[in-house]
Design a protein around this nucleic acid. Structure first.
Lengths: 134, 134
DNA sequence: CCAATTCACTTGTTTTTTGCAAGTGAATTG
DNA sequence: CAATTCACTTGCAAAAAACAAGTGAATTGG
């Protein structure tokens, strides 16, 4: 748990992991445009930190070498169950949640299937990206 | 998720919730003695923040009125599944984890039972405390 | 009693981190 | 080949954290 706190017990790391796992964000520019409004220096710092801790892998877009994208590693993907658990919690206690009740219902009835659905979503987004060049 | 990040996307809030939910800590002095070494001003600030967001309730020990303890609310207890999910994740990826493999095994085989076990643990700790005086 | 102690915080002060504005340099486009 | 895109850096002011030292109510020991 101390390990977990060290990695995403930081607001921005938490937001970035959410964006990459749940919102299909991959490019630097995508992350920068997050609703929360992260500063560029903090974004660069946190992407580096997440790469260093093995949560994201950094790649250069071969079609346009000035663009960079980040892929969630298996280690990051393994957080999905915990993240989805937090979303369910939010649907119960956040009055302004954007997550529909149907999500919480589905997750509670069959968590494994819900997790599997998000896993395939991640694969689908990754498949649409160019072949990673490290 | 944004709501969740706002509440425990902060290292110290995260640690305090872990301590109250998983390590049976209740008294101000208990939290202060956490391995991570929180400063007193930050501790006071975070306890107030968690109380304001309805995660903890503050009580004065009637037996010794200078002592204060904090109880996790139902809202905080509802985070148990997500927290336990994170611990399972840590057992897989943190080489220095203190959690035994048996825990991850039990949780994966029967998450509901494992959650229920922690719920009763929380009740057991609470039952040993004096009647809460707000 | 009452001086010493415990306990949950506060109050400075220094150090670290963040947010903001403005670059920078490599790669690409028109 | 000048203008633009893009992923960062850099410099600086502001906010937050760590550290050290109180403060005051409640309790204990003599």
């Amino acid at each position: 748990m101390r390990y977990a706190a060290g990695i995403f017990g930081d607001k921005w790391c938490f937001v970035l992991l959410r964006d990459v796992l749940l919102h299909g964000k991959r490019y630097y520019g995508d992350f920068l445009a997050s609703d929360e409004g992260i500063a560029t220096n903090v974004l660069a710092n946190r992407l580096a930190r997440l790469e260093a801790s093995g949560m994201l892998s950094r790649h250069i877009d071969p079609a346009k070498k000035s663009k960079v994208f980040y892929l969630p590693t298996d280690k990051a993907r393994a957080l999905l169950p915990a993240f989805l658990g937090m979303i369910v919690w939010s649907t119960d206690y956040d009055e302004q949640t954007e997550a529909p009740d149907s999500f919480a219902k589905a997750f509670r009835e069959d968590p494994k299937a819900t997790i599997a659905w998000y896993e395939t979503e991640i694969d689908r987004v990754n498949a649409a990206l160019p072949d990673p060049v490290t």
